[in-house]
Amino acid sequence: MPESSRNSPKSVDPGRLRLDGDQTLAGTLLGMRCLDCGISVFGQAVFCQACSSARLEPVDLSPAGTLFSYTIVRVPPEGWPGPVPYVLGEVELPEGPHVLAEVIEVTHEALKVGMPVRLALQEVQSGESGPAFMVYKWAPATKSAPGNGEV
């Protein structure tokens, strides 16, 4: 992993999101694949969730998936640093895992179960003066047409 400069934000969770190179908005979702039973999980693991094998290898997960479900959260949990309301999406990756994250660059009307989405990174400030993090989000796979305003 390249050394980040002092001022560039860190990954919200280096076990789940690797920041790639010095392009601030490039990154990869991380997972582990079991060499015995073949399943993949999102994030780090020491033993396989399905068969308890310790023979796991790190894998880069696909940067694209489909929207399995979504909700528009109007009362956020304590500590939520983003806009209210926000769209929370559950995305199914081709490798199997479901990944929960905010869906950005989409109008509420355009949301649809089954729509293709792509990984998108965003810098998030925690609190008034807390550190900034790079957080993984989802965005529609097809760029919104101009005039299709963001929320």
Partner: peptide
Amino acid sequence: GPVTVTAAGSPDRYIGGDHMMAGYAL
């Protein structure tokens, strides 16, 4: 207020997925 599972300061609070009722909504 909304019920969360993880402890304060957990990355899931910044990611936005730790929200019991949002889970039910999904």
